[in-house]
């Protein structure tokens, strides 16, 4: 009966399933609660909505300015993602395959800022954006994040794995250096770009501290900023409403993740970072 020890025991599936249910339950509770009136959420005696309606969503999207916050979040996240995909792939390739003066210093500099906490830079960044006239603008939220060290690290690691012969063959054929990057290397970077794109989009969508500092008027709030300020402000007791707000923040991200989770898992495997 030696073989039995290598088969997966049934109880393990049971344990994992229970663990998974516990992990996902707060999201289920959030979604169900978003259909309940505030009082029903606060009473806490129902799991399934007894008096379910879309009223909370109606309030979010017509009385409050959630379409605007959603749009702000989307614009910022898409711009930050596009910027990182372009800038980081260019530098990542240069660092991985080209020899140029200053490359070691540049790479050390980029790696050195990988671990810098956000609170270290936000005060001088605020001075800078104020003097550039970018406070309370979406551009002011985007610019500090369009060239992140993580993307350079990821793209460099990936391009290092591509064979040098490809580049040399293109050089023999007479292709210029920039042409080699755009028409030989970049088309091969699909998986790495996808990973970088998904991870950057998620972290930008969820970003909180900097948008909170830069957005001074409600028109410029991103979703997390709006949600956090409502949650600690005069709407703090509007439980149903705030749960609906959380759904609006969380569900698009879960959808993106479920569709593209392959690339996220690859990213963790190649870099060890989320």
């Amino acid at each position: 009966m030696a073989a039995t020890s290598h088969r997966t025991p049934r109880w393990l599936y049971l344990v994992l399933t229970v663990g998974l249910v516990v992990t996902v339950l707060p999201f289920v509770w959030m979604v169900l609660g978003s259909f309940k009136p505030d009082a029903e959420v606060r009473a806490g005696d129902t799991f399934w909505p007894a008096d379910g309606s879309l009223d909370n969503y109606g309030t979010l999207f017509s009385r409050l300015d959630f379409p605007r916050f959603f749009l702000n979040s989307a614009v910022v996240a898409l711009a930050v993602t596009a910027g990182n995909m372009v800038f980081c792939s260019m530098l990542g390739y240069a660092l991985a395959k080209l020899r140029f003066p200053g490359s070691r210093v540049l790479f050390a500099l980029v790696l050195g800022t990988l671990m810098v906490p956000g609170v270290v830079t936000f005060v001088p960044l605020f001075v800078l954006t104020t003097n550039l006239g970018l406070t309370d603008t979406l551009l002011g939220m985007i610019l500090p994040f369009v060239a992140g060290p993580f993307g350079v690290f990821l793209m460099r690691q990936y391009v290092l794995g591509l064979p040098d012969e490809l580049i040399e063959a293109a050089r023999v054929d007479g292709a210029g250096e920039l042409r080699i990057f755009f028409s030989v290397i970049l088309p091969l970077c699909g998986p790495a770009l996808a990973t970088l794109g998904v991870l950057t989009f998620l972290s930008s969508w969820n970003n909180f501290l900097w948008p909170l500092v830069v957005a001074t008027s409600e028109d410029r709030y991103t979703l997390p900023v709006a949600l956090a300020l409502y949650a600690v402000g005069e709407n703090a007791t509007r439980y149903g409403l705030l749960l609906a707000g959380s759904v609006v923040v969380v569900i698009p991200v879960i959808a993106v993740f479920l569709l593209l989770q392959r690339y996220i898992m690859q990213g963790i495997a190649t870099t060890g970072f989320k």
Binding site: T23, F27, M265
Partner: peptide, 23 residues
Amino acid sequence: FRVGFYLPVVTSIVAVSVVWKFL
């Protein structure tokens, strides 16, 4: 299972904090 256990990681800390505050 791996995707399921990873799910909370991708969600906004602000949003899940609102949910857990009520929990």
